[in-house]
Design a protein around this nucleic acid. Sequence first.
DNA 1: GCGATTTATGATATCGCTAACACTGCTTTC
DNA 2: GAAAGCAGTGTTAGCGATATCATAAATCGC
Lengths: 327, 327
Amino acid sequence: MVDVARRAGTSTQTVSRVLSRPELVSEATRVLVEKAVRELNYIPNSAARLLASTTSRIVAVIIPSLSATVYAREVDQIIRVLEPASFSVMIGHSDYSERREERLIQSFLERRPDGFILTGTQHTDLARELLKNSGVPVVETFDGDNDAMDISVGFSNYEAGRKVGDLFRSRGLTRIAYVGGRIEQDFRSNARFDGLDSRLREDGLAPVARIQLKLPMSARDGVAGLDQVLDVDPLTQAIFFSADALAISALLECNRRGVRVPEQMALCGFGNYDLADATMPALTTVAVPFETIGELAATAILDRINDRVKEPRRITLPLQLLRRGSA
Amino acid sequence: MVDVARRAGTSTQTVSRVLSRPELVSEATRVLVEKAVRELNYIPNSAARLLASTTSRIVAVIIPSLSATVYAREVDQIIRVLEPASFSVMIGHSDYSERREERLIQSFLERRPDGFILTGTQHTDLARELLKNSGVPVVETFDGDNDAMDISVGFSNYEAGRKVGDLFRSRGLTRIAYVGGRIEQDFRSNARFDGLDSRLREDGLAPVARIQLKLPMSARDGVAGLDQVLDVDPLTQAIFFSADALAISALLECNRRGVRVPEQMALCGFGNYDLADATMPALTTVAVPFETIGELAATAILDRINDRVKEPRRITLPLQLLRRGSA
DNA sequence: GCGATTTATGATATCGCTAACACTGCTTTC
DNA sequence: GAAAGCAGTGTTAGCGATATCATAAATCGC
């Protein structure tokens, strides 16, 4: 920056101003400085800027895993919103573990991010404390059922479960199973199960099976889930899968085995992935606005950083049950 | 850090040592300092560290888009390797545009990353120059066909095209089409086409159609691609799709229309996605080691940063043609 | 036409850490 | 028993930017 200043015949302070608040500098000197910057290929050092100004223009994002399409698409949108505002995005994997999330928060805090976007509302006490002490804005996503620390952007997993229960019950089905992630890992899947369960209880019923798959899940696990359900109750009439990939592979497997969907077995997915309407029959599923979540979470962080919004906020997005052929 | 030092009764330098090179400090003072760190909830400031030591422990990753499964899985692995080495990962989207990549490189350089992982070998001149001047290690991925700046980790897209050509020709098929991304955007898809084309030319043939889809592609585009191929040549016998998602949706559409696969229409995908072996018939495809690419790219960056490797390197991973039912 | 503002620029003091060197006791070596 | 080596710790001087205040020049109101 000293070199640029010398070449432009100004002080470093003026160079700094041209770079971050050009409206304070006269047109003539601005042009001069910009020329010097270009000629010297000067690239500012953001660490020095952070040290002097205490704003990093970094947002930390913690998701369970980038391999899960949902989160990859969410992060994609987050980046699309934050990048134009010249924020960089730092990503970490919690692998569905609160402990790992805690460690990540701790290590991300060393970078003094201007915001955190977390997944879910379940965190360790230390994690909460660290975040609170740091004073960094936090947005929690994907969980509209529980209280958030400050801002939350999500949907009700519980409602999703109830909606699917409604659908199955409207067809008079009674032997209904659920396939999701491990109870101690996948809190949001649990909430979906609870919703389904509560709906069935209203009619004096209960799920005939609840299968817990190890995370992360692959499509193949859909067939495993199907088989485990049939092991527990061979007369099962309907299955709600916690992710479309599972449901699709189960549906294709039913086709292969000659099990008629939905007559013999009704299937419902969750997420509305790319291929959900390509199967035959097309997959009935719950459309989850994960890209909107990413967009709104990023916008909420920006609003908070720029002090446009001061109060805690809770944004709950509507879910849509897409009734297609499979249920 | 001053507070920690005071509380532990040492100098800040000793605190610094405990944090970054504890082997230089006696057990007794180390314990004392660690206690003070815990009690004060001290979190070091990485910007100050970077300013003083010129190492950021950041690796910048630029991919076309996180919405494409391939790149999401690659980045997933990159993070899994770099995080334990206490590097943070910064991600940007080029959206298949060299211009955008150039701008990203420029803005990432402000953070003084210790390494760059790029996608492909196609970059603007300025991008190359900036990277060269900065002296940051660069790994280029997914392109084993062209020369890299320094280290490359990828596979031959050209070879992939030839392999698929071999397969189709071994069945005596002559009317072969290709469906991929736009020629001016998707360089790696182009190389696959070139490989297929060169193989067909050996037998005096040429592709009957080359469909270019707008990026980013969704599964739905597979059906569009299929239709466009049939528009150009209704007698087409085989199609090579540049991504499994496209091929799967085309395959399911063929099932729906009563077109027999592979007898009337042979289909081959690329990538070996999760659902590729769940269809009926199962999808013949090229297995791409994208997770290995992520892992090796990250490892290569670490090796370079730690000066374990000094020479340019070119890692080319083998591809596997998975012959399943669809071709 | 003179004091009061406003606009544009500069000087100086940090921000929080680490590199480099200096120092203090010990132990080792022959 | 003196010289040399070593482990452990401290002192000092930056790293490259911005905040803050000071100053100079231009514009304003009446």
